[in-house]
Design a protein around this nucleic acid. Structure first.
Lengths: 356, 356
DNA sequence: TTGTAGGCGTTATCAG
DNA sequence: CTGATAACGCCTACAA
């Protein structure tokens, strides 16, 4: 007595039901309930319709309206892995910005796999998202190209792509890293090393450049034996890279500038394993200020990105794009990439260099 | 020369376009491209259609099909705050389970606000989600009732609601806490205290019950001055509650059993502030094993939930519900709530009791 | 095995 | 100011 397709409860109230109950035509109801409608409606009728809709519990079907208007009020967010603590604040920021406009966010984790990344774009395209936030952007990115093929508006977050049209909101990794390294040098460090990440990512590249330039300004060369790269920015990756670097060098550097916090934690572990004390024997720095890195032993010196603000800004850029309040992005290349400043977080893992 | 509504690129290929190109009717194409179609199609025609669709880059419009079939292949996930590290693994687990079925997940953060929680449900209902995962469930929950009004299938995650119909997949908080407390008692602790959370949450209640029963089994009473509650499970909340508990007691307890890790971190801070050493003067335990709690000083003894498995199981339950492979949930009340076992993570913050 | 017709709920356009 | 009509892209009886 209970059909599978029709659970309990009366069927959903439609626009036409409200119209019938109010004694008007459906199109009139549509005009009343949709703010941006063209034709005006008499206050009396409008009032009646509104109260009737309320009473009947009418809720618009955005599927149907989306079919007609070509807009679903939904936006996709593609990230590698929500377990990486940089992403949640970005999601919050984006949501905070979009929710007032009644947008909804669709989240997809790629698991660092390009194939599923492309599949996700397809799935989201099928869902007819109005736009897409990509936090996975490479400097040269097939995913970005596919979105362009599909004519889906894209805002790149945290990373940027090297083209002339994809707007991006990123942390100022270059400046953040440069400041950090200058600080380390000011503390007396002369023998620095960097554990970087693949240069296909804008963040990794910018950080390396910041490191390089800070060194150059101080008159230091960037030595090859003081530079290594992880393949993935994880604790394990950092551990392996550090082990490699320490094994190949005659003596350890006085400070390890790591591309991010997870890598720094791996570095910390690797240093301990070979008997180096942190920060007495070697200093370590990270980047991101992920939760709890201030409570580990020793508290990690790092750089804090304003992720919430990056998310909000990205949301605002997207709204601009969709609601067409601005010219096409390519028209103002100067503003295509917005850099959000970061903050130094000095802690005990970076200590003054030993003199001796 | 570039209309705002039609960016670059040709318009999207429709089913009928493929049909025209293949020289057949749209309905035939639909039958070929949809696996579960009724009428069969000759292999020859099917092959031609498939290759044509491929060549033309046809991508189905799930808005249109959803309007027809009453299914959007999208599912909502409502959580309080993605920044709480328990949620990301759940999202991953859910996604891993649903992605192969071409479902997509819509995420909403409530910010711990009931009003936005209800708004989120409305917005997701408007998006015509096929189902909803609620990780915000209270024992008696207006949100659950609203979903029922709307006839939206719900699977509760991490928490359960006290009704006879909402399926839930949760961590076995009762067993996990009971084991932990038994362990503390085995280490010689006699004067235990608990920092709990509001009893409107099933997790908080189950943990308190586990604590109580472990005490009872050992023949200890649950003293009121050794029990306090946070209003929110945050570091700040834990710090305040601990400060209160310590201030009101004549002497500190020998171990603080905290409702979760964040609260435990707050407790740690509060203990340090009043000059107590951990674990020499007082032991502390958490729950959740959030990232890095094993690297802080001292490493936190805690209980690890299998969040990924909880997410996957919830996904499976949802698929069951939607694809109707099982009876309505109420029919098998025994299986309505699935408990996923947790694992003890012993670390240095829980030390043997001082003798004397 | 394939085509035809009608409709899912909404909105845009045109009349009145 | 309001009503009628068609269309958005797809699916599904039913007919051929």
């Amino acid at each position: 007595m209970n059909e599978k397709k029709a659970p309990r409860g009366r069927p959903r109230v439609r626009l036409s039901d409200v119209a019938a109950a109010a004694g008007v035509h459906a199109s009139t109801v549509s005009r009343v309930l949709r703010p941006g409608a063209d034709g005006r409606v008499s206050g009396e009728v409008a009032e009646k319709i509104r109260s009737m809709a309320q009473k009947m519990g009418y809720r618009p079907n955005s599927l149907a309206s989306g079919l007609r208007t070509n807009s679903t009020r939904s936006i996709g967010l593609i990230i590698h892995d929500m377990n990486d603590p940089v992403y949640p604040p970005i999601l919050s920021g984006i949501e905070a910005q979009l929710a007032p406009q009644e947008f909804v966010v669709l989240v997809g984790n790629t698991g660092y796999d390009l194939k599923s990344e492309l599949e996700l774009v397809d799935r989201m395209a099928a869902q007819m998202v109005d736009g897409l936030f990509l936090a996975t952007t490479r400097l040269d990115d097939p995913v970005v190209r596919r979105c362009r093929d599909y004519a889906i508006p894209v805002v790149s977050v945290l990373r940027f792509s090297e083209d002339d049209f994809t707007p991006a909101v990123i942390n100022d990794c270059y400046g953040g890293m440069r400041d950090l390294v200058q600080h380390a040098i000011a503390l007396g460090h002369r023998d620095l090393a960097h554990i970087g990440a693949p240069q296909t990512l804008s963040t990794a590249r910018e950080r390396l450049h910041g490191y390089r330039d800070a060194l150059a300004e101080a008159g230091f060369a960037m030595r090859n034996d003081r530079l290594t790269f992880v393949t993935r920015m994880t604790v394990e990756g950092g551990e392996q890279a550090t082990r490699r670097l320490l094994a190949e060098a005659e003596s350890p550097p006085s400070v390890l500038i790591c591309v991010n916090d997870l890598v720094a934690l791996g570095a910390l572990r690797a240093c301990r394993d070979v008997g180096l004390r942190v920060p007495e024997d070697i200093s370590i720095t990270g980047y991101n200020n992920i939760p709890l890195v201030g409570m580990i032993d020793p508290p990690l010196t790092t750089v804090k990105m304003d992720l919430d603000r990056i998310g909000r800004t990205a949301g605002a850029v997207m709204l601009d794009l969709l609601l067409g309040k601005s010219d096409p992005p390519s028209a103002k290349a100067a503003q295509r990439i917005r850099r959000i400043a970061s903050t130094q977080i000095p802690r005990a893992s970076l200590a003054p260099a030993r003199t001796g």
